[in-house]
Amino acid sequence: MRISLFSFALILSSVFSAVLTMPTTSRAFEVEENRYFGPKDSDALKILSTTDTDLLAPLIGSFLALNPGVAIDYTSVSSAELMKAVMLEGAEFDLALSSAMDLQVKLANDGYTLAHYSDLIDLVPTWGTWRNHVFAFSQEPASIVISPAAFAGLELPRSRQELISLLRKHPDRFRGRIGTYDVRNSGLGYLFATQDARTSESYWRLMEIMGGLKIRLFCCSGDMIENVARGDIAVAYNVLGSYARARKDLASRITIVEPEDYTNMMLRTAVVLRTAKHPKLAGAFIDHLLRAAWDTPDVPEYPFHRYPISDEAQNAPFRPIQMGPGLLVFLDHLKRKRFLAEWHSTVQQN
């Protein structure tokens, strides 16, 4: 899980206050991995991404096969580092791929991105693009991951309400065995939490109960999935479903629940950066991603589950998180401070 192991809050507040201050000259943002694809001698398309290199490598491969002579320089970072690199350091990349859609929207809103126009955009549902700057290329649900062993004898919950009543009925069984993101440190956890809080009051009730049951906080989805698989915790709330699905090795020990009341869908998005040296090639790569994500037939190298596209997204349980200036609201540092304070007081009840 790449989204923000690092001090997210610190960076965000610095993003707001420090745009005026000069960018540091050195490559100060932390790189997790850098991999080069394609011929060495060519001028490579530089991608800054929060997505694991291994996950996207097949798609990169098919892109290179279609565009001979092109090389890709793929740098994976956390979403907070991506923001730091682009907004504070002006690092020169062509393309930014990120799961932090709020941050991507902020990049586009604040003028760090270029527009991209192509016929393929018609394939993307209207909620999957913003301003022709931000393009979604995956839908990944905020799921509940359950250990079937821990639920032996109980009916598995299908919605938050059912989970709440289960937790109420069997407090001893779940005490200390519930996990969720530490939203103070995880960008994605914060995004899911704020969207939950915006969508339904039941989120706060759930947090209240979970807090009462000594909820354990995690940095990332991967940790939660492994803890559930080991049986250390029984329920993990707001886990990135795509990562849970990807753990085929743990499939027998975990159950993924996409809540029927509503399931927030995180959209992994791509933007062409204003510093792009190859904006056309970057656009072509975006088109490649969009084709894989939205076009028929399915391509085998696409690493994410394809959920049905429904234009009545509001009525279906799957609710893609709405891109637009609304996402900027929770990035406001005062808003964030308040939210975190409230969240903390709800979750940490000792």
Partner: peptide, 30 residues
Amino acid sequence: DIPYAALSMLGNVSNDRVFYRVSTRDDVLT
């Protein structure tokens, strides 16, 4: 405590970029 709707309503009208500032005479609050 900026309401979600304060900015999302602007997004519903057009796809334009949105900026805001809350300040006192002396300080920028956010």
